[in-house]
Design a protein around this nucleic acid. Structure first.
Lengths: 245, 245
DNA sequence: CGGCTCATGTAAAAGCCGTTCACATGAGCT
DNA sequence: AGCTCATGTGAACGGCTTTTACATGAGCCG
């Protein structure tokens, strides 16, 4: 039993050399596997091949490790949302929907980060750095909403961008939490979470007076460059929910 | 120290008499106080004045106690949604919005139940009884959506009720999770969670072609539905988000 | 090169929790 | 009155978190 540990130590020496990073990676794997609640400090230490006390040289306690992961998560989240938004190209509505899909994709593809960010029970606002990172991510949605709001059809009152952003965020988060993660994903749905969210956002935007039948319809913006750019996200004829039978 | 426990036992005898219920109540309090993750079996036992092993006579393990609470939560949730829906009185749209508010109210007023139901990481679909209870609650929303869908303005394709229900659920859950609970509630918002959700739902319904503003307002599709649906749902003129300044 | 220092690791221990097991109690039935 | 079995107890095991005193060795300074 003990020879294993000894061997590992022989391989890497008394000092690990990169323990902090190793712990973060280990924790990421463990959270992805067993959830933010199930993850233990001791397990991460074991996985990194160090004693249970070693992590305390790099993190005040278990919560600080979790916070670090959440922080990184928000940063990656921000990056992905930024890339998805792509400054509103090729047109605002298309890019906006892409942001929604990016939200779901992140929740699906980075369950560990998502778990640390939204399901770990961490007091986000107790950690200024964490709160700032969270805010930066949200600001992407906010900026996108702002651009969208500016396109509001004339004649109708302009919706507050902040409110729109909060609405979109709540939709994406609701769909991700309820239908796109872990066991919840097993709920039987008439459509995929992606489709569900896309329809939801489209209906919402239509409620605000935006033209959402992009492919063929006239949009408030000059039409996007090539027609096929909108393939895949196009609204099927008959509305955002497809053909009623 | 020990005389305390002895005294308690003297007061209530060797047998507790109603331990199962006492444990459920204790757990409810603890979860409300420290979150579903922070709650411990041992604490509940202590609070009930019994040894740490006693709870095992009533619950297979900690998870089963949590499941029991989630189960009760879904039942109460169903009751409150049913009451809010009130079979669609006085009119469908008004009742529909009332359901949304009831959702938020439940999340706010019963944090322990809500936590056990949605934030405890319990595998809902591993427990048939729990899953059934969850489904019954959702069915209230589904039924309401069905009634609403039936009122869809003629000429437009009828939205699938199931999809509407899922949309509404995700909105309510998203708003509740992000803005209406615990620390998250401290995020500074331009409006209350209730107002936020109400506006969101109204915009969404308008996107489906429902007339959601007061009779005086002009909508894209003026045809008023049967007198039943023309409500006094209290939408301020100018849209669901109030007057822009 | 030799020695010092301090960041980084370890073992051990205290205290908590979940869970199990053998045993105790007494409520309710016969 | 006596029996039985559901219900409660104490002790014990292993695991986790966190602290403390001690060990190691990498990097710097003369």
């Amino acid at each position: 039993m003990s020879w294993r540990k000894e061997q590992r130590r022989a391989e890497r020496g008394y000092h690990h050399g990169n323990l902090k990073e190793a712990l973060l990676q280990a924790a990421l794997g463990l959270i992805a596997e067993k959830g933010a609640a199930g993850f233990t400090f001791a397990d991460a230490a074991r996985m990194a091949g160090v004693s249970a006390a070693a992590p305390y040289r790099h993190f005040r306690d278990r919560d600080e490790l979790l916070s670090s992961i959440a922080q990184r998560g928000f940063e990656q989240f921000e990056q992905r949302l930024t890339a998805a938004w792509d400054d509103g190209r090729p047109d605002t509505v298309t890019a906006f929907e892409r942001v929604g899909r990016a939200y779901l994709a992140f929740a699906r593809e980075e369950p560990a980060f998502y778990g640390a960010m939204f399901e770990s029970g961490l007091p986000v606002d107790a950690n200024p750095a964490l709160q700032a990172a969270s805010e930066r991510a949200f600001n992407i949605i906010r900026a996108a909403a702002e651009r969208l709001a500016a396109l509001a059809p004339p004649g109708t009152p302009r919706p507050p961008a902040m409110m729109m952003a909060l609405h979109i965020w709540s939709m994406a988060h609701g769909v991700a939490s309820l239908f796109s993660r872990g066991d919840a994903a097993r709920r039987k749905l008439p459509m995929s979470p992606d489709e569900l969210l896309e329809a939801e956002v489209l209906i919402y935007l239509r409620g605000l007076g935006f033209p959402t039948d992009r492919p063929s319809g006239k949009s408030a913006e000059p039409p996007p460059v090539p027609p096929e750019a909108s393939s895949g996200s196009g609204v099927p004829p008959g509305g955002p929910w497809g053909k009623p039978k």
